[in-house]
Design a protein around this nucleic acid. Sequence first.
DNA 1: AGGCGTACCTGAGGGC
DNA 2: TGCCCTCAGGTACGCC
Length: 270
Amino acid sequence: MPELPEVETIARGLANAVVGKTIDSATVLLPRVVAPEPDRFARELVGDRIDAVGRRGKFVVLSLASRRQLVVHLRMTGRLIVQGAGATIPEPYSNVLIRFSDGTRLCFADVRTFGRMRLVEPEDPWAAEVGIEPLSGDFSLERFSSLLASRTTPVKVFLLDQRRIAGIGNIYACEALWDARIRPARPAGSLSKPARRRLRDSIRDVLRRAIDMRGTSVDDYVDAEGLRGGFQNVLSVYGRDGESCPRCTRTIVRTVIAQRGTWWCRTCQS
DNA sequence: AGGCGTACCTGAGGGC
DNA sequence: TGCCCTCAGGTACGCC
């Protein structure tokens, strides 16, 4: 489900809703989605306080007063939903419930149960393997070029590799490649300098515009308040096979690259 | 090292 | 109506 813009939107909503709140209790309804093991997970959280909520790649990071972090990956269909004190029924498919001392609660829900929630110690280097943040100042043309150098994998597969650049998923990979007029199957290392510059700029532009519109709700994505995003209304190619390319009017196609649906224009992406 | 296929899950939607 | 197939915003793992 969520890629960088959706995770950013969720994190901002959560920051508004839960920062400063103290955890009264935690209930694990599906043991395999948490770490450490459920009893310890629940016990350790009690009495701790949410100090901040942020994002790293596609991870939502809740920083606790104990300096530990609650690190959440939503995978395909995970949701983090805050409910008011009056709520009686948890968000459907809830796997973890975290209750706060003011009566509100945070539901970690996931139909497909791929999402994970991990309580990590202050010194845990979990983010070391996560790639560069594409919206940070570090994501320069030079840095992007060195990451791409000599890679033979299709540039679209490269964009999805979270160890290189963090936060891009299938929707924004397709959209950024279309915006930069680059064919998704091109070997990553084969891009000219102008193409690399276009792609870097397109990645940043597409992600920023999507954040401004609170993400893309193709199917079931909602933010922490349960609200849908708006970027699905302005997608150029994703999911639009058979429709007309917004730039050249030729027909958008869907092909498969690395087992993932890939939408692009054969005419203006080369 | 890196690239590829498969596994993990449930539900929605299309074809027949 | 219902059955069967494919597909889905993601990553981890094992194999070559």
